[in-house]
Design a protein around this nucleic acid. Sequence first.
RNA 1: GGCCCGUUCGUCUAUCGGUUAGGACGCCAGGUUUUCAACCUGGAAAGACGAGUUCGAUUCUCGUACGGGCUACCA
Length: 468
Amino acid sequence: MSKTVVTRFAPSPTGYLHIGGARTALFNWLFARHHGGEFRLRIEDTDRARSNPEASAAILRAMQWLGLGHDGEVVSQFERADRHAEVVHQMLATGHAYKCFSTQDEIAKFREDARASGKSTLFQSPWRDTAAADQPDAPFVIRLKAPRDGQTVIDDQVQGKVTFQNNQLDDMICLRSDATPTYMLAVVVDDHDMNVTHVIRGDDHLNNAARQTLVYQAMGWDLPVWAHIPLIHGPDGKKLSKRHGALGVEEYQAMGYPASAMRNYLARLGWSHGDDEFFSTKQAIEWFDLAGIGKSPSRFDFKKLDNLTGQHIAVTDDRELLEQLCEFLAATDRSDLTSEQKELMLRGMYCLKDRAKSFHQLIDKAEFILTTRPIQPDEKSAKLLDGVSRSILKQLTPLLQDVSWIRNALEEVATKVAEANDVKFGKLAGPLRAALAGRTACPSVFDMMLVIGRDETIARLNDAIGEA
RNA sequence: GGCCCGUUCGUCUAUCGGUUAGGACGCCAGGUUUUCAACCUGGAAAGACGAGUUCGAUUCUCGUACGGGCUACCA
């Protein structure tokens, strides 16, 4: 009988959730869901100076938008400080840790000298083997008493077996001189206590995994399965950092990308399932595995996200899409649609959704629905409404009164009018578009007529004809 | 500096010793067209470099170059 799979996402609340963190969260979520396990969320807020509650809230909001629901309570690492200290004292008692009285200044000076003379900057505390009786009455930190020889092997699901010589690993600090636990120690205790079975995180933690392994061993705890995924780089190949083009997840939401497309794109960034590019979240859950994760870092590409977004919008159910659109409007502080507008949007969704690569574009295409008479044509459209075309529209308008309001019939009438004036239909479509939408980017003229209905169509045409 | 990781078309990637190195986005050309799109057809485009192992290397090993990460009483 195998244990239930438990994964976790453990962001530090020092800023918004950026795209790399979002992908890490997604992978953990996907893996847990695939195995019917649990996906836990832990806020790593042990650094009080840099943590702030707004950041936690923003991360939670971003996760919710992405649809990455977590199981159980959100764990605050800071609140578990007592348990962390308890573990450290246990290690102290069993001889796996010791008190170190070296001051930060001493250590800094040591490193400075070591670097200057080209020697290893690895600090080896002189207090490692000092008997309790010989210890001074001074501030101290508690360090892990790590083995000095032998090696530590990380059996990583993505990176393979990675070997570290133990003499390259320092005696990491577990408890600071103010008696607060360090992150390095806290992760291990928390992951163990939360029964985390699989640690999927950025490969910037690969080195840490070795040192953390030493803590697991000191405590006699089972090791989790490691999977260190490569980082996402910026368009220029450099590390994606907050001051370097890394956008918060909420900004992608504001740019009008639907969460389903984000999940698809992010999953595809660094993970693959054969040649599959466009897939649903359900399929991603079905397919996700650690073996499909690549070893090299990848770059973020908006063009591909746009393309995927277009496909997701096109296949989303009309009602669901309208709901997402309204959420988008709310998230970007725009006024909600009226119920009449929603009604019309629903009616017109079929001709709007297969040509939009963001919610912004969707709204743009829907301008003919959202606007009200009299239509103010933009410059390009206004030019199309010259005397000649107005006279053609004048002939068309009365005919619309009695024609049956279906596409074929409308096309027939329009074609007839065009022929009577000895012009191609294209010549008529421009002015018609100008009268109905006031702009060039919009759906087919017949689709627009069908969506807004006979009365509104005729009214808009009369407006256009009447204008001087 | 030390330790660790990586390197297939511009980008995301497939390939798990034998392929004309495949797909997707983007790009270019043509077609369709009722604007913007969408759509259809075609095209250009890649194994960083050098050795070794092998009948045969993109694939395995080593070296070099380049890129990245870690090297805190940060996470």
